[in-house]
Design a protein around this nucleic acid. Sequence first.
DNA 1: ACCATGTACCTTGCAAAGCAAGGTATTGAG
DNA 2: CTCAATACCTTGCTTTGCAAGGTACATGGT
Lengths: 112, 112
Amino acid sequence: MKTQLKKGTLDMCVLAALAAGDSYAYELVGILSRTMEVSEGTMYPLMRRLQAEAWVSTYLVESASGPSRKYYTLTEEGRRQLAWMQREWREFVNEVNGVLGLAAGAAEGESS
Amino acid sequence: MKTQLKKGTLDMCVLAALAAGDSYAYELVGILSRTMEVSEGTMYPLMRRLQAEAWVSTYLVESASGPSRKYYTLTEEGRRQLAWMQREWREFVNEVNGVLGLAAGAAEGESS
DNA sequence: ACCATGTACCTTGCAAAGCAAGGTATTGAG
DNA sequence: CTCAATACCTTGCTTTGCAAGGTACATGGT
């Protein structure tokens, strides 16, 4: 469920998570999954996009408990992009809530 | 812009607008355009979907200034669907803001 | 009569994004 | 030696928004 709602917000969520510290795709799925549903099939293509846009850069780190991890760091441009996305996000939420609010006022109690 | 963010919210917005009173596709574009960007190419297929799901029903009304208008009414099921969508929407907004908030707290001032 | 403008309907074809399902390789436990 | 967990990845499908195009009616201007 909620698949459609996530469109366009996951990049922002990942960038926000990376703003709190470097991480790798597999771990990011776990981190975001504490709050919302995400799958690996979504994550890996997403990370490629972020890198293609130069919003993140990568480096490899060997792990003692499995294959090497591909860590991602937020770039300066990524940081700017995150700020811009957050502005758009808040704006959009207001727009939608505006439409919902209008309807709520007209559909429910028209007290005074 | 913001095309991706709209995915999944436009149906809800249209249902909300219809909760305030019957309307037709062309007019709905105008109504929603006061708050957010929508185009006809989006609206007409959308209305077909809503009707296919039985969330709206239609009736024709002749117009003095152009072709007949296809009015849409919210059905009982549509009303229930709208309520459910709004719940999902608020939940989702909280989830995303949660992820953004975590990052904000960790990235900016770590006072105390 | 002609044409532009506004109203009102519609479709086709594309692009973007999320996801299930599948696949590979490494490490450690039983 | 097999099983699970870690960690990477791709292919194909689906949904949705949108630009671009097309139809038809009414009105006003020329």
